[in-house]
């Protein structure tokens, strides 16, 4: 047996957990006090009594003394739709293109595979302005299509599915061919059910990816009705000083973190799997 001093481990881990939890505690705490107390630098370390008022105000109106934001309810719905469309879109187009590349023989097969693969080297950040110009020319500004479609091509997801499809034994394809199943039947009855685990794991990662998008929504949305919550918060803090509506910002921050954090914690098994698999 290994002799291990476990109190060292506990100390380090508790410290790590505390450093992670501290900012969240402060945000939770900030969402329960009024703007004046926080702005005056007098916020105590225990919760105040304004929680209901702050969350209510953030959720329904989003407007404070200074803040002129959209209501959190609207921004949450936008973020949720954006995350779900990106997730389902990426999974759908990646799984069918991986299926085409693995199970068919056709001219230019490898050409298309490399074409998808190379997009790994062109993240949106390095081609911001021309991509924005293309989206603007297509009339995609301030629309859900503009917010999501340019982001749903995915080399990583395609590679992941391709990798998995290559492990499906040839005998399965042969058997279903003998049964008279065509390629679509085989996809629907065999490949899709076998891919369930991979799809679930990928969905968890992609939902977080979609929810946390920043640069692209910042460019493509201009109207308050289309604002996503992550962008909405940073607009509120753009002039951070004593008169900022800190109470509203903190309530909004807590609400904005809730869905992705809940997904990670509740679907931890899929999350860990998805993260480690998709980076291979």
């Amino acid at each position: 047996m290994l002799h291990e001093r476990s109190w060292h481990a506990h100390l380090a881990l508790v410290l790590g957990v505390a450093v992670f939890a501290f900012p969240i505690y402060m945000a939770l705490n900030g969402s329960t006090w009024d703007a004046g107390t926080i702005g005056g630098g007098r916020m105590p370390l225990y919760p105040g009594a304004e929680a209901a008022a702050n969350y209510g105000q953030a959720w329904f109106s989003g407007e404070g003394a200074r803040a002129k934001g959209a209501p959190v309810s609207v921004m949450m719905i936008n973020s949720f739709l954006m995350a779900v469309i990106i997730t389902l879109g990426k999974v759908a187009i990646s799984i069918i293109s991986a299926y085409a590349v693995v199970f068919f023989a056709f001219p230019l097969r490898m050409f298309f595979f490399w074409m998808i693969f190379i997009t790994l080297m062109l993240p949106v950040e390095v081609r911001i302005i021309p991509t924005y110009a293309v989206a603007a020319n297509l009339g995609l500004i301030d629309s859900f299509a503009g917010l999501t479609v340019p982001l749903i091509a995915s080399a990583t997801a395609t590679l992941l599915f391709r990798q998995f499809f290559l492990t499906i034994p040839d005998e399965l394809v042969e058997a279903s061919k003998i049964d008279g199943a065509g390629p679509l039947r085989f996809f629907w009855d065999t490949v899709l059910p076998l891919s369930r685990t991979n799809i679930a794991a990928l969905c968890v990662i992609l939902f977080i990816y979609g929810w946390n998008q920043y640069l692209w929504p910042l460019l493509i949305t201009t109207s308050p009705e289309m604002e996503t919550i992550v962008i909405g918060i940073t607009k509120l803090v753009s002039t951070a000083d004593a008169h900022t509506d800190w109470n509203l910002i903190m309530a909004t921050t807590v609400l904005a973190m809730l869905p992705p954090v809940a997904v990670v914690i509740l679907m931890q098994r899929w999350f860990v799997r998805g993260l480690i698999e998709s980076e291979k």
Binding site: I231, P260, V263
Partner: peptide, 11 residues
């Protein structure tokens, strides 16, 4: 220890 991964960079 794993949940901060879910927090957006801006948040």
């Amino acid at each position: 220890l794993i949940w901060p991964y879910a927090v957006a960079p801006a948040i």
